[in-house]
Design a binder for these strands. Structure first.
Length: 944
RNA sequence: GCUCGGAUGGUGGAAUCGGUAGACACGAGGGACUUAAAAUCCCUUGGCCAGUGAUGGCUGUGCGGGUUCAAGUCCCGCUCCGAGUACCA
């Protein structure tokens, strides 16, 4: 009887749906295990064969854990808000909601074919009001919170207000955009508007002025990668740097905790490293400088306080507020021209074209250590957004300062013994200090000469503190997240405006649903697309008015027209899966305490500095509120590799319709053309299929080699235009889901990026057929019988149990597929038909090939799903060998092998080897210096 | 530029703590069965050399050194490839 995978897979898919096989509830009697994949954005192109890689890997793990007796949560959902659906809407008028639902349905159809153990009753979609209710809720909580640095957690803003009322900013240590100082009396004297304005400085979700790439013609903010050569990528409209009021999240307040948390999770070192770099902690010193003959003061940040005696100029960022203050009248025109010029350059241009530019302000600053007057320059190599937007320049020991000094002919003053700064700066933090201070300089008491750089930094820090010249400061590169998008297809903000200040819509009014609009473009007045939805604004506000007495009934309040960015909905979805239909809370206490956090998270590295940072931030915030019980959301993280396309090429001879095979192409003048990989097999083109592929090839002619047309190939991104997309549906149709699952795992380590190559899938398919033939003869007889397995059969089985168990734990699925192949080959050779052996084999296979396993499990007489079977345990007894082969080598060179009883002792082994006739040839006339015996493996004789 | 990975047959990839390469699979070649095809099964398959043959010898994990009885694995110095990051003071 044949292995009829189509029938089997259809049957079991239905059974699983009918029996709710994969539904999971909080079962206190069992240990939990939470497996999660990064949920997909349902794109219009559907799934290609690379998408399921991570899902299969985690599904295998989930099924394995379930077989080990765990209560496994393995949910799936959709990151449904996103730009492509909106762009499509702009072009076609098709509402994004419709496109999205269609795409989701298509995804679901494709996913269902692969046999995942997802609990679909827990599905979430970020665009579902029931879902984004809690995204909006979290935003409101962030608005209503500030970050208390002393307690190192978020607290209700009402507490901060109370503190202001009684003591002003006195004695507070809180995260803020700008250090403010006021007394209780001053606070109490502020108007409501002023108080609200002040609170913005502290809220975790706040409205802030930030620099953005603004495209006036498109009416939206653009990300850096959407701007090319100063114009928008779409349309080619000019883009300018502009300060805009945008919603921001104070992620920076969590920088240290985000860094510390990395120590507690099991992620790859490279991913942790990426996040560490992104957070960019740097310990340094802030020092105050004042401008000569003026009372203007400013602060700089440096990690090299030791180089204070080598400062030969100062630099301000062009955006710095100090620029107008330090610019002298004589220099004003030139400075303004420079500011104008830099404003026009986008961030991207600055990076691409790194020429040295700058302008002298006319003022001099005073070095606090030496009293020297040093010129203050303005240059765009200093960033306004990092540190204080001002630096002390030490050209001898910083390459950027060096380039600037060379360009403008400024002094370069080396401070480290023996360093050569004639060609380049000496940036390394090593060496012995000199010239600090230089001979004859009027000192202030600080002497660094003779110290190492490290010592000098510490000494200077202490000195600065002692003399109140500044303070020791830790800076982070991590910036607050800009949270506003001028887009339609995203979560609306639960925000309305009164007197120009934002207020939160009462939580009882949530979810604030995304309104219908008739156009998806910005309004004529330049407002985001939501500006088209005026009626909705009215209705919503009115609804709130009746439910919230604080709002004056007679007024119409403008609402927030921006929507939230993509990462809003994906930041806490793993919590929602625990309790997805709860209308009272994001997640119930009970579900949260049961499921805790994600034990195993699988997804791509491309989210290293996006989703995986935001999500950790979001979770920490919820942890502070007492909503999430774990501070880190994802305990273990596995990054699956990308599956690239393997493109095939045919070579057309120029100006003809003749195609030449790969080996002969160099003899002609040819143009390579991407050919559909689905009509190529082992790089050999199916000529008839090619002619039928496109009308223009209908009468193509070929120059063959050995009667075949051989195609060229290359690894490229999987995309329609390259004709290298392989659709999982096709593979499932041809070979079955179980083959697809096993083949994807067999392809190589899950973490590795590799090109998809359908060649080779036959090997895996053959394996499943072979397995089937252990159960059914060709004539259709059912082979398994009761009876005691032989020692060889047990050995083969238990070898497999051991291998597969450790392999799954290590995510080494490719080698466990190999182990299955070996075992089935052995059992087949042994003509094993013992039901007990086959039953264990089936359980081991169940995570990999669930449909086939279910079918055979049933055939063996079981009435329950194989999912509820028990994972077999390896009995080491069966693995023991009677005889062990030792490799005998001389001076490390292997010569022959000898068999020994497994329990032979070293003395016997040594004696036998020395006495063995094959040894004589090597030992003749030589003395054995040493004998090394590696247990059960090697005997090595070291001879003189 | 910096950081982190990686380099093993025609191909994808195996190889615990350093233990004597190339598991498993594909492809290729040969054979069996068959009228034929498909399917299935068996043999060979890193390179070179010797032998009718069983087999034996040499060489071999990007390159050059080193440590060791023993190196794909450890150390030093290169080359190339990939990923991330980009004026962070």
């Amino acid at each position: 009887m044949e292995y009829n995978f189509r029938e089997i897979e259809k049957k079991w898919h239905q059974r699983w749906v009918e029996n709710h096989t994969y539904r999971v509830t909080e079962d206190e009697s069992k240990k939990k295990f939470y497996v999660l994949n990064m949920f997909p954005y349902p794109s219009g192109a559907g799934l290609h064969v690379g998408h399921p890689l991570g899902y299969i890997a985690s599904d295998i793990y989930a099924r394995y854990k379930r077989l080990q007796g765990y209560n496994v949560l393995n949910p799936m959902g959709y990151d449904a808000y996103g730009l492509p659906a909106e762009q499509y809407a702009i072009q076609t008028g098709q509402h994004p909601a419709i496109t999205t639902v269609n795409n989701i349905n298509r995804y679901r159809e494709q996913l269902d074919k692969i046999g995942f153990s997802f609990d679909w009753s827990r599905e979430v979609r970020t665009c579902d009001p029931q879902y984004y209710h809690w995204t909006q809720w979290a935003f409101i909580r962030m608005f209503e919170s500030y970050y208390d640095r002393r307690a190192d957690k978020a607290r209700p803003i009402s507490e901060l207000v109370k503190a202001f009322e009684t003591a002003g900013t006195e004695g507070l240590d809180v995260a803020c955009s700008e250090e403010l100082a006021f007394t209780a009396a001053e606070w109490n004297a502020k108007s409501e508007r002023e108080q609200q304005e002040t609170l913005m400085n502290y809220r975790i979700a706040y409205l802030g002025e930030t620099m953005v790439n603004w495209c006036p013609k498109l009416g939206t903010v653009l990300a850096n990668d959407e701007v090319v050569d100063g114009v928008s990528e779409r349309g080619g409209y000019p883009v300018v740097q502009k300060k805009m009021r945008q919603w921001c999240l104070r992620v920076s307040a969590y920088a240290q905790r985000l860094l510390d948390g990395l120590e507690t999770v099991e992620w790859t070192d490279s991913l942790k490293e990426t996040q560490r770099n992104w957070i960019g902690r740097s310990e340094g010193t802030e020092m105050r400088f004042h401008i000569k003959d003026s009372d203007v003061e400013f602060t700089i940040f440096t990690t090299r306080a030791d180089t204070i005696f080598g400062v030969t100029f100062m630099v301000l960022a062009p955006e710095s507020e100090l620029v107008p203050q330090v610019t002298t009248d004589a220099r004003r025109a030139e400075v303004e021209a420079y500011l104008e010029a830099t404003k026009k350059r986008t961030e991207r241009e600055r990076i691409a074209d790194r020429r040295v530019t700058g302008v002298f302000s006319g003022s001099y600053a005073v070095n606090p250590m030496t009293g020297e007057a040093i010129p203050v320059w303005i240059s765009d190599y200093v960033l306004a957004g990092y540190g204080t937007g001002a630096i002390m320049a030490v050209p001898a020991h910083d390459s950027r300062d060096y380039a600037f000094a060379k360009h403008f002919g400024l002094e370069i003053r080396p401070l480290i013994e023996g360093c050569d700064v004639s060609e380049e700066s000496f940036d390394a933090k090593e060496g012995i200090m000199t010239n600090s201070p230089r001979e004859g300089m009027t000192g202030c008491g600080l002497v660094l000469n003779g110290l190492t750089v490290k010592e000098a930094i510490a000494r200077t820090k202490a000195f600065v503190k002692e003399h109140h010249l500044g303070r020791v400061k830790v800076n982070y590169r991590l910036r607050d997240a800009i949270f506003s998008r001028q887009r339609y297809w995203g979560e609306p903000f639960p925000v309305y405006y009164k007197d120009g200040m934002p207020y939160m819509i009462p939580e009882t009014c949530l979810p604030l649903e995304l309104p219908e609009v008739d156009k998806f473009l910005p309004t004529e007045t330049g407002e985001p697309p939501l500006g088209h939805a005026t009626r909705w604004a009215w209705d919503t506000i009115n609804k709130c008015v009746t439910e919230n007495s604080r709002i004056d009934n007679a007024t119409v309040f403008p609402i927030e027209l921006n929507t939230m960015p993509g990462f809003a909905g994906s930041s806490a979805y793993y919590l929602r899966y625990m309790d997805p239909r709860n209308d009272e809370a994001l997640v119930s206490r009970r579900a949260d305490e049961y499921w805790q956090n994600v034990d195993l998270y699988v997804g791509g590295t491309e989210h290293a500095t996006g989703h995986l940072i935001y999500s950790r931030f979001w979770n920490k915030f919820l942890f502070d509120l007492g909503v999430s019980v774990k501070e880190e959301p994802f305990q273990k993280l596995v990054n699956q590799g990308m599956i690239q396309g393997r493109s095939n090429f045919v070579y057309r001879i120029k100006d003809t319709n003749t195609f030449v095979s790969l080996g002969l192409k160099d003899q002609y003048d040819v143009t390579p053309l991407n050919v559909d990989v689905n009509i190529v097999s082992n790089d050999v083109l199916d000529l008839e299929a090619f002619k039928a592929w496109r009308p223009e090839f209908a009468n193509a002619e070929f120059i063959l080699e050995d009667g075949k047309y051989v195609c060229g190939w290359a690894v490229e991104k999987m995309s329609k235009s390259k004709h290298n997309v392989v659709n999982p549906d096709m593979i499932v149709e041809k070979y079955g889901a179980d083959t697809l699952r096993m083949y994807e795992m067999f392809l190589g380590p899950v973490e590795l990026s590799k090109p998809w190559d359908t060649n080779g899938i036959d090997g895996v398919h053959r394996f499943l057929k072979k397995l089937w033939s252990l159960f059914y003869s060709r004539k259709g007889e059912f082979l398994p019988t009761e009876g005691e397995p032989t020692r060889d059969e047990l050995k083969s089985l238990h070898k497999l149990i051991k291998k597969v168990t450790t392999d799954i734990e290590n995510f080494s699925y490719n080698t466990s597929v190999s182990a299955f192949m070996i075992c089935v080959n052995e059992l087949s050779q042994l003509k094993c038909n013992k039901a007990s052996v086959l039953a264990d084999l089936i359980v081991l296979l169940a995570p990999f090939a669930p449909h086939l396993s279910e079918e055979l499990w049933e055939k063996l007489g079981h009435t329950t799903s194989v999912c509820d079977a028990q994972w077999p345990v390896c009995n080491e007894e069966y693995l023991k060998e009677d005889v062990v082969k030792y490799t005998v080598s001389f001076n490390g060179k292997a010569r022959f092998t000898l068999d020994f009883p497994a329990d032979a002792d070293n003395a016997t082994i040594e004696q036998t080897v020395r006495g063995h006739e094959a040894s004589q040839k090597y030992l003749e006339g030589k003395t054995v210096k040493k004998v090394i015996i590696v247990p059960r493996k090697i005997v090595n004789l070291v001879i003189a």
